[in-house]
Amino acid sequence: MEYLLLYAEGIDAQPYDPAEDNIAEWVADVQTRGISEYGERLRPGQDATSVRVRNTRVLVTEGPFTEAREWVGGFDIVDCRDLDEAIDVASRHPAARFGAVEVRPFMTWPDAVPGQRVVPADLPGRAAKGVRYLMLVCVDPTGEKDGPDDPNAWVHEMDGRGVRLFGEVLRPPADATLVRSRGGKVLVTDGPFAEAKEWIAGLDLLEVSGLDEAIEVAAAHPMARAGLMVLSPLWPFDVADDHVARAEREAPERGIRTEPKVSR
């Protein structure tokens, strides 16, 4: 079964300690197991952009939907035997110690091609042709109820334009599992990382010329009317890096917005 691991930051945990960051070990482990499909770190929440369409107007706001401190700092897509393996893998990720990992199964469709994975097998080796954004498709109770919500036409169009690298719908938050590691013990609980009225229903990885194109692509999705889209720029880093040096180098960026400020 395929799972999305969402790394939530800002959960009651020990502060990030780069000296204890063993991400290279983790990546080596999931690669040895053959379960890793794709994963990226995301830029801080302040660099995220929310897109809604209401009364045919595109509303763009800074930051993610939740006003809480916690937000998604990265993600991985893994193909595990069952939930226990996904929990095991999640619990070993440094994010389980420095935050929490939300484990979300993907929707499985009755007409799915057997053996086909969410992420195209050649994607990790493919050179980027543009700027990549993770687009989180979210349900928002304030969204418009009467509009179309079938994304097939959008998927077809964006695949044709080459701006959508992959995407899939997630099982609802009721099927989510939260995994934390505290003091050497693995804590497994029911539910998503944040109890908000909005919730993450799916995701797409976009490859575009920049934020403006990302907003245009997001706004064209039917869920921009019925819910909202959150665009998060990726924040790649070398897992084999000296994390202490990296954290020092990146420290200023954590407090400075690097995406152009949006207002429409």
């Binding site: 079964m1 799972y3 595990c80 035997r81 069952d82 939930l83 226990d84 996904a86 095991d88 484990v103 199964p105 099982r171 009721a174 099927d175 989510a176 599992t177 013990k185 693995v186």
Partner: peptide
């Protein structure tokens, strides 16, 4: 019903946990 649905959809395994996970 919801609990059974989560067992199916989240992939909760139907087995005795392996020795290292058993005590917990």
């Amino acid at each position: 019903v919801r609990a059974k649905a989560k067992i199916a959809h989240a992939g909760i395994p139907y087995r005795v946990p392996p020795a290292d996970a058993l005590p917990e």
